[in-house]
């Protein structure tokens, strides 16, 4: 019903957002891509010594922390995302099946979403403290000797486990909330029909709930993977800007910000841009793969 065209007027309304988007969103995409192909880019004056096709990409791949960062990023994504998706799906289903206290539980489960990852990360670091943390105390009840999880000198595998616990914990809130609202929008008729056929609960879950929720599960999984690829603040919160003992928890985004934190070092900004491009293509690959999978699998 918008038959009239208002070209001029419409662009006036769009203008404030448009200017900001051009300067801080569209231009940066182009510019960051270009920096990747510039030799010795000077971030303050924009000078550069010529063009290179793969020079900066080679530099980032040759960075001593590049492969560890890729490994850490992939481990974080492929462990924390499935764990938090599955746990939150079950919590949402249980939450949806009760009436009393549903609101209270919902509020509690939502807390990690609103609170500050730095502040909560510090609390997790205290819980995972080697000498007086709650976690080591609980392990000691099973006869396990104290483990150094977060402090300087911690082993990589232990730091990674502690980090995965925190990241999974942190990711539950949003997923529970979205799944719950999805469950509440499923037509009750399906469940009534299942009850008449006296289908078992696990059967109802597998044959009705999961298929009908599958678009949402797919959406949450893809956005969570993208989020997990960009994990940074949670690591800084719990382990500090060094990204763990000797940077052993470095991620791709960690490389970006480490390089960007020293913009005056020659080649630093190019390195940041190249790492960002690597992240961009990882994200793109995942998005395309996910779209392909969900076309085949998701029941709409």
């Amino acid at each position: 019903m918008l038959e009239e065209r208002h070209d001029f007027k419409a662009w006036i309304y769009l203008l404030p957002a448009l200017i900001l988007l051009i300067v801080f969103t569209f231009y940066p995409i182009v510019n960051t891509f270009m920096i990747v192909f510039m030799v010795d880019y000077d971030f303050l004056y924009g000078d550069y010594a010529g063009w290179t096709l793969t020079g900066n990409i080679e530099a980032v791949i040759g960075h001593r922390q590049f492969w560890p960062a890729i490994r850490n990023t992939i481990i974080i994504a492929f462990v924390s995302v499935p764990m938090s998706v599955i746990i939150s799906l079950f919590i949402a289903v249980w939450l949806n099946s009760i009436k009393k206290l549903q609101g209270t539980f919902q509020t509690i489960f939502f807390l990690p979403y609103v609170t500050n990852a730095i502040a909560v990360g510090l609390a997790f670091a205290v819980i995972f403290n080697r000498d007086y943390g709650l976690f080591n105390y609980l392990l000691s009840l099973f006869g396990i000797d104290p483990i150094n999880w977060v402090a300087p000198g911690a082993e990589w595998r232990f730091s990674m486990i502690a980090l995965l616990v925190f990241i999974t914990w942190n990711g539950l809130a949003f997923k529970i909330m979205v799944f719950l609202s999805g469950l509440q929008s499923i037509d009750k008729q399906y469940y009534d029909a299942a009850r008449i056929d006296s289908a078992s609960r696990s059967r109802v879950f597998r044959k009705i709930t999961v298929p009908l929720l599958s678009p949402m599960i797919a959406f949450i999984t893809i956005t969570s993977f993208i989020g997990a690829f960009k994990e940074y603040t949670a690591i800084v919160g719990m382990f500090g800007e060094q990204m763990g003992h000797r940077g052993q928890l470095m991620t791709i985004v960690g490389l970006v910000y480490e390089a960007l934190g020293e913009p005056y070092t020659a080649g630093s900004v190019s390195l940041a841009a190249s790492a960002a491009i690597v992240l961009f293509f990882m994200t793109l690959l995942l998005t395309v793969f996910n779209m392909w999978v969900s076309k085949k699998r998701v029941h709409y």
């Binding site: 940066p28 992240l279 961009f280």
Partner: peptide, 13 residues
Amino acid sequence: MIPGEMFVITNFI
């Protein structure tokens, strides 16, 4: 769909 780091680098510049 584009990761924010792409913007952050140039916005910092």
